[in-house]
Design a protein around this nucleic acid. Structure first.
Length: 476
RNA sequence: GGCGCUAUCGUCUAGAGGCCUAGGACACAGCCCUCUCAAGGCUGGAACACGGGUUCGAAUCCCGUUAGCGCUACCA
């Protein structure tokens, strides 16, 4: 095991977002690549918004994706004492100071700054308080926060994905590290924990780059070496804005529900902002690990394209034998309220597989073949009915008369094809005009596997019943 | 407003100064296959944001402009 230690540190204030999942994936890939350790830390210091339910969902999402952690989950809330000690040490060393400004006063200052169209920067008025004044206010029981005194020096780092990024100390506000209730604020808690957990590489979203100078300043004040930082680009919606709820499905669980394979999701997410170089698209896990590097991560944000995800899932779907798909298909059928009973689903799944991109789409096709009550004529089916007119019902009656005499033993794809072809030829009907009505009668759709295979899959009695019912209904 | 990041087909990207007449994938269109659709095969349209440098030579390096995004809490 190498000395590399990375962490994924979600806050349990929402579901596992695809952006978070990708950040976790990059951390995991890097850990596996380097033989390092992947630590999971739940940042639950915002007690207002954190819930156990969210923590559970996040853990389940990671597990589903096959992202396994070596240590944790640790809960940041458990380390409050250490955070406070670090803050107090900084205070004692004069690297931080008590701030007695109230929220209202601060808000007023911010507004004033905005009116003058100038940047708000805390003016350090409390830092200029004399020791006597501070003593007095503390004695009077006035509440205070602890602010970090940001040194007026350049703060720069060599980002593993962006290269050199630098800030001037004067542009970094004296940020609060300890709330008036004595609990630590994010930036301090993160640094304190990353130090305690020996984190060597901080791989996180681009939205944290402006936190990084603050955290580096903290590392320096605490006398600790800084880890390597790697800021991975944001994931955007189709409109170019940061991906959020209003873009539709953004939670990993949404895709799980739609029947996306974990492997496909992982593959897709990995290629969003990272490329192994060359033309590789479908990457097995071991290849992904072998080829991964922080430097190859793209520095610009990427748009989340569901169509490509579904295409990729289709690739995994067609590569998976029907037998392996069965449990997942049964789960989806259950969600759809269809009970397959003792039916052997393998042949049906095999037939529907090629026309599906997700397990959900697959299950919907299976459901129609199993349960006539699920037949709904779609637009193209209706259009066909209109186009054929009386021929629709007539051709169905012909099909029924042709197929009904077939014994169960002869109800095979080969025999069925022969029978329909012979009948159509005898009556001078185009094969398509004979086949399509059957397809529509059986599925309500103009799209399916070859009709003879469809008939075989649906079965003799059920097929004849559906054909008769459709002929009847359209004739009336 | 300030600070920071970013800029190759509609989208994901390849490209680390000559291999670029810019490659692949998704999506789209057409053709083939075919009872339909999908798959598969073939074909097509589609991009280096703009302006200056540096260089014999720039998608690649530098500067500027423009645009987009992020952050700007006693949230994380």
């Amino acid at each position: 095991m190498s000395s590399v230690r990375v962490r994924f540190a979600p806050s349990p204030t929402g579901y596992l977002h695809v952006g978070g999942a990708r950040t976790a994936l990059f951390n995991w890939l890097f850990a596996r690549k380097t033989g390092g350790t992947f630590v999971l830390r739940i940042e639950d210091t915002d007690k207002e918004r954190s819930t156990d339910a969210h923590t559970t969902v996040i853990l389940e999402g990671l597990t589903w994706l096959g992202i396994t952690w070596d240590e944790g989950p640790f809960f940041q809330g458990a380390y409050g004492d250490r955070h406070r000690e670090d803050a107090l040490r900084l205070l004692a060393e004069g690297k931080a100071y008590r701030c007695f400004c109230t929220k209202e006063e601060l808000d007023a200052q911010r507004e004033a700054a905005e009116r003058q169209k100038s940047a708000f920067r805390y003016d350090r008025r409390c830092w200029r308080l004399t020791p006597g004044e501070v003593q007095q206010k503390v004695a009077a029981g006035l509440p205070f926060t602890v602010r970090f005194l940001v040194p007026d020096e350049e703060i720069a780092w060599e980002d593993a994905v962006h290269g050199r990024i630098s800030f001037r100390g004067v542009d970094v506000d004296d940020f609060v590290i300890l709330r008036s209730d004595g609990t630590a604020i994010y930036n301090l808690a993160v640094v304190s924990d990353d130090i305690a957990m020996g984190i060597t590489h901080v791989i996180r979203g681009d939205d944290h780059v402006s936190n990084t100078p603050k955290q580096i300043a903290l590392y320096r004040a605490l006398g600790r070496p800084t880890p390597v930082f790697a800021h991975v680009p944001m994931i955007l919606g189709a409109d170019g804005k940061k991906l959020s709820k209003r873009h539709g499905a953004t939670a990993v669980g949404d895709y799980q529900d739609q029947g996306i394979f974990p492997a496909a999701m992982r593959n897709f997410l990995a290629l969003l902002g990272w490329s192994p170089g060359g033309d590789r698209e479908i990457l097995p896990e071991d290849e992904m690990i072998r080829l991964f590097s922080l430097e190859a991560i793209q520095s610009k944000p990427a748009v989340f394209d569901v169509a490509k995800l579904e295409w990729m899932n289709g690739q995994y779907l067609s590569a998976t034998p029907a037998a392996e798909l069965l449990p997942a298909v049964r789960r989806q059928l259950d969600r759809l309220g269809v009970a397959p009973g003792t039916r052997d689903l393998a042949p049906i799944v095999d037939a529907a597989k090629a026309r599906s991109r997700t397990i959900l789409m697959l299950a919907e096709q299976v459901a129609v073949r199993l349960d006539a009550a699920r037949i709904r004529y779609d637009e193209k089916a209706e259009a066909l009915v209109r186009k054929l007119g009386p021929a629709f019902a007539a051709n169905l009656r012909l099909a029924h008369d042709t197929l009904a005499p077939l014994a169960d033993a002869d109800w095979t794809a080969e025999r069925l094809l022969e029978a329909v072809k012979a009948a159509a030829e005898a009556q001078g009907i185009k094969l398509g005009d004979a086949m399509q009505p059957i397809r529509v009668a059986l599925t309500g759709s103009t799209v399916s596997e070859p009709v003879n295979e469809l008939l075989a899959v649906v079965g003799r009695a059920e097929s004849l019943a559906r054909i008769a019912a459709a002929a009847e209904r359209r004739a009336a």
